[in-house]
Design a binder for these strands. Structure first.
Lengths: 240, 240
DNA sequence: CGCCGGATAATTTGATCATATTCTGCCGGC
DNA sequence: GCCGGCAGAATATGATCAAATTATCCGGCG
């Protein structure tokens, strides 16, 4: 009992040393958010914007040294992402970036068509002028990225457009569901865009914006459905 | 350096002792699944079947001693559940069982109506005789639980019925989404059932079964939609 | 003289880490 | 070709620190 107490003091000293090194790193990274949250967000963005390749293995130890944090936060972030289907947990405790196959794409399309038009319709009856203006600005940046041939920029702004739109709908539960779907096809979308470039990337954003500005819920839903179908068709054909 | 080594040996010894006790406990629980998976499943069932009360705080340390495992597995299970919305992460790093309010119920209803009829329709064109028979058997057990006034049994068998039905649809991604929704309203559903007992718990399961047996996709979807609306109305009125 | 509000101490809980242990997959010997 | 050891990665634990909540205490006021 006593010896354990002494021992603990020593460990406390070492722990403090490493902790200080750690603290500096976290401050450098940014806000006062917990490390597991930071790891989660950075990994999520990497998946969403195609910095990870389908099939690529994701190891805990790799992340710990890459992000300079302990294993526990990494572990938690990975659990969150695997729970959301953004990463694939191979039975033999190995984690990889998911490789989409036809049935998965079909289900994702079904789910997106079931949810995103509903959100667009809600947004149409809730949006105000400022929100539409911000949405227009995002869409212009999106067009710029396409013209520039900037794949990463396209992915970022496209997601931004849809995220802003979903936020307007004031339905956080539905929005969370949709975000989870986007995480699932993010890596594959990047692959497709990488193959074909940004030349042939039509979207229905103009039609969506018109419907929103007119407060036309049904029109917004239809336009969103078309946008989703177009996007998922791209993925299907690109991976075929 | 040396002292640390000695210390480590002692810690290892204690760790092993508790680990062996643990191993026994894990074996008792069942298969050779990892601890975090077991914790996740047990917590999920508790949420799904109403053993946790809305608003009740869920603490890591409480779980560690309750389930006799270390903090890391508990932590991972909680991350998975909060990611799915089954638990609510209060900003001040405290976790509680979610308390549903009207907008949340509305969104859950929207999502369920968007997804579950689709799954039912898919099931209708995929089911075979054996699956229908199993589904019938589950529904009979469900009726038994209702007649007995067994709330817990009702929750278990009702979930089982829908889970089996969704499995027939062979759309694991959609099924996962729906499972997440069920987790969100599980605790509140229990509260409602606890208030009213199992007397007034009508469902559309007979209609669903007929449609499935007839291979009538559209009929199955309609019946499922009615079942979902009925169930969610119960919750809305019960919590009002 | 008793009660209440705010400041402080104590406890509880969460977050993170280093380490020990276990499992998986691979490689070389038979 | 198969089996046993080995390297590496994942799982799990306990220690420790930080934050937040709760309990306590004391001075001022009714």
């Amino acid at each position: 009992m006593f010896s354990r107490c002494v021992m603990s003091r020593k460990m406390a000293h070492w722990g403090r040393r490493s902790k200080e090194r750690q603290a500096v790193n976290l401050q450098a990274e940014g806000t006062g958010l917990p490390a597991h949250e930071l790891v989660y967000r950075r990994l999520r963005d990497k998946i969403l914007f195609g910095e990870l390749e389908p099939g690529q293995p994701v190891t805990i130890q790799g992340l710990t040294e890459q992000m300079q944090v302990g294993m526990t936060p990494v572990r938690e972030a990975l659990r969150r992402l695997t729970a959301a289907g953004a990463l694939d947990f191979q039975g033999n405790r190995r984690i990889i970036v998911p490789v989409l196959h036809a049935p998965a794409i079909e289900q994702l399309t079904l789910a997106r068509i079931a949810l995103e038009p509903t959100l667009a319709a809600r947004a149409a009856v809730r949006c105000d002028a400022g929100e539409i203006a911000r949405l227009r600005a995002t869409d212009i940046r999106l067009d710029g990225a396409i013209a520039r041939g900037d794949v990463r920029g396209y992915l970022v702004e496209n997601h931004q457009f849809h995220a802003e739109l979903n936020a307007i709908a004031r339905a956080p539960i539905l929005t969370d569901l949709v975000e989870g779907l986007w995480l699932r096809f993010g890596p594959s979308l990047r692959v497709v865009c990488g193959q074909f470039g940004t030349r042939n990337l039509p979207d229905q954003h103009k039609a969506i914006l018109s419907a929103l500005a007119a407060g036309d819920a049904d029109g917004a839903a239809r336009a969103m459905r078309a946008d989703v179908e177009q996007g998922m068709t791209q993925i299907t054909e690109g991976l075929a």
